[in-house]
Design a protein around this nucleic acid. Structure first.
Lengths: 157, 157
DNA sequence: CTGACAATGAGAATCATTCTTATCACAGAG
DNA sequence: CTCTGTGATAAGAATGATTCTCATTGTCAG
């Protein structure tokens, strides 16, 4: 599963470049910790915790401070190149945000812990409608569905 | 805003009784901390943090341990009498769950911090549809919209 | 009324995250 | 090319919410 080649329409390299130029545009300089974090995020196509990113970087032999991982992730979120996701377990997860502005939400299996992304134009439409009706300018939104994945459903027969 | 009388269809007392019998049915005994927490939750018609519940109880002169507040809140969530809400700021909030199963979600203003509940059958329908399509048995779901409330929108003219 | 066992409270322990601070590396001036 | 200012970095301390521990208290069944 680590091959990560192409069930997305854009190559992972595209996001890497996007992230780095976004940071540069925001006035940040480049550095070792930054490239490591960006490379690591690009490598995992699903969301990862700061701790996981840190561990993966250390595993690849690089020495990066945990605080630097958090700082870089915050900067990436601030420039919109990364999305912060929270599943309610007290840990933030991060995933690359496609430059085209598309986004998805997550299904979390309460039994096996698997996380699966999904998209739903209908859901997005409903959320947009709520914003209009409540006269709220909705800037971001989070939707997390908890339940049982197909593998963890008690199937009979 | 503390009068709290009746823009809901059911009296606060109804929920209090519901919560206590739900706990009893789950095999829990009653105690001082429990009644304090339930009473406090019933008093505030919007979501409150464990710390806020604790402070309010102490303010009323009762001596209740913070750990007990957390424990009782967990039990209430477990029996479905309370809903846990997370806005992504690292703090859990809790609010009474109506016995009739109805529920709402929240709009959070990023500027003034005000929280407003909303309901949207369309949104619920969309979520239900996602579960069907993904063959996921959705048991709970959380939706939080972040943005600007009407008061914090830059209005001109 | 009494025993068994859950509930409680105080503080310690844990865990993710943020802060502090000394050091480091790169960009531009000279 | 070398010097110097500024942002980046690493390590560990600090913070804050939540959970755990355990001695004690209170509840409820019999």
């Amino acid at each position: 599963m680590s091959s990560g080649r192409g069930h997305h329409h854009e190559p992972a390299g595209a996001w890497t470049g996007h992230a780095e130029s976004a940071l540069r545009a925001a006035g940040h300089r480049s550095g070792g910790a930054r490239s490591s974090v960006i490379a690591q995020l690009a490598a995992s196509d699903c969301c990862a915790t700061a701790q996981e990113v840190h561990d993966a970087i250390r595993a690849s032999g690089q020495r990066v401070g945990l605080a630097s991982v958090y700082r870089v992730l915050d900067q990436l979120v601030a420039v919109g190149a990364v999305t912060r996701v929270e599943f309610g377990d007290g840990v933030s997860r991060f995933e690359p945000a496609p430059p085209d502005g598309s986004h998805h939400h997550h299904l979390v299996c309460e039994r096996c812990g698997v996380v699966r992304p999904f998209e739903s134009p209908e859901l997005e439409r409903a959320i947009h409608g709520v914003g209009d009706r409540e006269r709220f300018r909705v800037e971001t939104h989070e939707v997390v569905l908890h339940g049982r994945c197909p593998d963890c459903l008690p199937k009979r027969a």
